[in-house]
Design a protein around this nucleic acid. Structure first.
Length: 489
RNA sequence: CGGGGCGUGGCGUAGCCAGGUAACGCGCUUGCUUUGGGAGCAAGAGAUCGAAGGUUCAAAUCCUUUCGCCCCGACCA
């Protein structure tokens, strides 16, 4: 087996898969499209989850849990919703297996369910069936509930983390008395996602509105965060939906307002998933493997002890014990790698796993009362005094966090084009890759024609866009919106 | 669902066309020497060749059927 991995420039898809495997993030499950999240990958998810969960709670939401199984009939209630998910549902039709005479195991035909049960692809329907019971008065509103759950979407084509048959996510489902409040909530949670992406994952995102054709099935309006990956393609990293009264009407959820009038409830839903891990890999990874932002890295500092003799080993051990204690006291996640691999092996291993900082400590350092610090983002090594680590390490971690964000932002800016000619548009999408900001006449015909001809889609209508003076890149008509086009994951 | 590829020790593959003792690399075990950028040597363990039928004295190899996975498209977080 070769020691390195496929370079990104040679085959980006192969690079991605190899990084996941070699860094120990995940493995394929036995059923097509399923994924085992291995301990190192799950530690990463745990950290992301912890950051987001506290933000969700700070904004006034509470966690709950709704069932995995949903009656099939619920999906018939909201027309657009069922159309959006009908083609990718796992359906429970039977409840028993039985052994045949030849020793095979078959589905027991006698155990067929009266009404089939759907494994949730998302939970709006089951949650709104419950909200009907819980909401009567304006005093019951707003209802601000989040759940951490797994969902199943039986996709044709899957990719580790980016699109798996089953994935983990968080889905918020809120109910409000007014349309204004629902809109405010939709935008508030998008802002939470923006902060998560930029401040924790170190991924700059563009916020904006999805077009009619790209919005969530059953939503009035979908807003999103879109990020650029290392191959210049776009990744939708999170969405927040203003559902209007669609689900309230579908599930007949009404409340009495202050004026004693009955009114349908306004709804939102919003979610981010384990796809975020894919985003971190794709946004920051390099040809040596992962580069993890310190704030979510399972280990922020990895110690690689170096020694020859048993005496050296003990000297190194006692030398680094107080260092590790100091760092841990500052709540830095430190890991000591005492496995009996060679130092060179460990250097490469922890670079593959994306540990932000590496401490190399050998007899030489013990003698000089120093340690070698290697930072993953830039690959620089420096020798520092042992005593100064307590101040240097936290500062370096902050700097790495910032640096990863800056690099990703610079990359996105460099690969974003403001264009007015469709010729150039085609060239960028087909040859250069990247985001194109341009005018759009707002028609679905233009949107689908461009998609047909170039495979680029409108990622969003950015909030900071301005159509004034722009013409549509395709039709030449006056632009109704300024939009971002890109090839997407 | 359309196109392509692949199922052989834990992983990656060769062998298949032209049937005849199941091979190689990595990993694993044990021992010794090593350890500041993926250590070396030696000795070992480990496979009913995806499954089921068939042809044959003989099948990983030929034929039939079947199951599964991966990649590329259409669809999607």
């Amino acid at each position: 087996m070769s020691k390195g991995i496929t370079p990104r420039s040679k085959n980006y898809a192969a690079w991605y898969t190899e990084v996941i495997s070699r860094a120990g993030l995940a493995d394929y499950g036995p059923v097509k499209g399923t994924m085992v999240i291995k301990p190192y990958g799950f530690a990463l998810w745990d950290n992301i989850k912890e950051c987001l969960d506290s933000m969700i709670k700070e904004t006034g939401h509470v966690n709950a849990y709704f069932p995995l199984f949903i009656p099939k009939s619920f999906f018939a209630r909201e027309a657009a919703h069922v159309e959006g998910f009908a083609k990718e549902c796992a359906i429970v039709t039977h409840t028993r297996l039985k052994a045949t005479e030849d020793g095979d195991i078959i589905v027991d035909p006698e155990s067929r369910l009266e009404e089939e049960v759907i494994v949730r692809p998302t939970s709006e329907t089951v949650i709104w069936s419950m909200y009907k019971k819980w909401i009567q008065s304006y005093r019951d509103l707003p209802l601000l509930i989040n759940q951490w759950a797994n969902v199943v979407r039986w996709e044709m084509r899957t990719r580790l983390f980016l699109r798996t048959t089953e994935f983990l996510w968080q889905e918020g489902h809120t109910a409000h008395a007014t349309a204004e409040e629902a809109e405010e909530e939709t935008l508030k949670m998008l802002e939470v996602y923006r902060q998560l992406a930029e401040n924790y994952l170190a991924i700059p995102v563009i916020t904006g509105v999805k077009t009619e054709s790209e919005k969530f099935a059953g939503a009035e309006k979908t807003v999103c965060i879109e990020a650029m990956m290392g191959d210049k393609r776009a990744l939708q990293a999170g969405t927040s939906h203003n559902l209007g009264q669609n689900f309230a009407k579908a599930f007949d959820v009404t409340f009495q307002n202050r004026e004693n009038r009955e009114e349908y409830v306004y709804a939102t839903s919003w979610g981010v998933s384990t796809r975020l891990i894919g985003a971190v890999i794709l946004a920051h990874g390099d040809d040596k493997g992962l580069r993890l932002p310190p704030r979510i890295a399972p280990y922020q500092v990895v110690v690689v002890p170096i020694f020859r003799s048993d005496d050296d080993r003990e000297a190194v051990r006692s030398f680094l014990a107080p260092i590790v204690a100091t760092l841990k006291a500052k709540e830095i996640r430190v890991h000591e790698d005492w496995t009996d691999n060679s130092p060179g092996f460990k250097f490469n291993e922890w670079e593959m796993k994306g540990a932000p900082l590496r401490l190399e400590i050998g007899p030489r350092d013990v003698a000089n009362n120093k340690v070698v610090l290697a930072r993953r983002d830039k690959g620089e090594k420096t020798v520092v005094d042992k005593e100064r680590l307590g101040e240097i390490v936290p500062a370096l971690l902050d700097d790495i966090q910032r640096e990863l964000f800056e690099q990703a932002l610079a990359f996105r800016e460099k690969n974003t084009y403001r264009l007015t000619s469709y010729e150039e548009f085609r060239d960028v999408i087909a040859n250069k890759g990247g985001f194109v900001r341009c005018g759009w006449d707002g028609t679905e015909e233009t949107e689908s024609a461009i998609k047909e001809e170039t495979k680029a889609t409108i990622r969003c209508i950015p909030f900071d866009g301005n159509p004034e003076g722009l013409t549509c890149i395709y039709s030449g008509k006056p632009a109704r919106y300024e939009v971002i086009f890109a090839k997407a994951y």
